[in-house]
């Protein structure tokens, strides 16, 4: 849950002009400025979960050949790991699971006819999720 302690710490990060004692009173009595009111009114933080899916064409139904998911919590970047399966067969499967496409890959200009292109067509998707801390 979004604890009072965390809210207090976040307020400090927001360069609030209130003194430390006033901040404590803010947290305890919920008499807050607009920014803090937003934080304290939301026991669960809404954050954006982002996923890259690389498909073999611009079609939503094309096979997915690569992925990376960035969780909306402090963490290291995702890395290459053994034993990992593609989370979705196609971008369309991800949409059915609640992901929203926020970036479609561009139509590519025709490349060199005798050269294999760069890897996959990159779709970027997101989910808005509640984050408990």
């Amino acid at each position: 849950m979004f604890s009072a302690l965390l809210a207090h710490r976040r307020c400090l990060k927001m360069n609030c002009s209130l003194s430390g004692a006033e901040r404590s009173r803010v947290v305890n009595n919920a008499t807050v400025c607009a920014r803090r009111r937003f934080l304290l009114a939301s026991p669960n933080m809404k954050r954006q979960r982002v996923m890259y899916l690389n498909a073999v064409s611009r079609s939503l139904r094309a096979p997915v050949v690569g992925f990376a998911i960035h969780e909306p919590v402090p963490s290291d970047a995702p890395q290459i790991e053994a034993g990992v399966d593609m989370p979705y067969e196609t971008v369309h499967h991800a949409i059915l699971d609640g992901w929203k496409v926020i970036h479609f890959p561009a139509q590519r200009a025709e490349g060199h006819p005798e050269a294999v292109g760069v890897y996959g067509y990159e779709f970027i998707l997101d989910q808005i999720v509640d984050v408990d801390e």
Partner: peptide, 30 residues
Amino acid sequence: EDMGPTVILPGSHRRVASPESMVTLVNLRG
């Protein structure tokens, strides 16, 4: 597997890819 083996992508040697174009790639099929 837990000792940080080299990972390779079979068939990738015919793709010329700049570091910039690879920056979002992580786990790849195959």
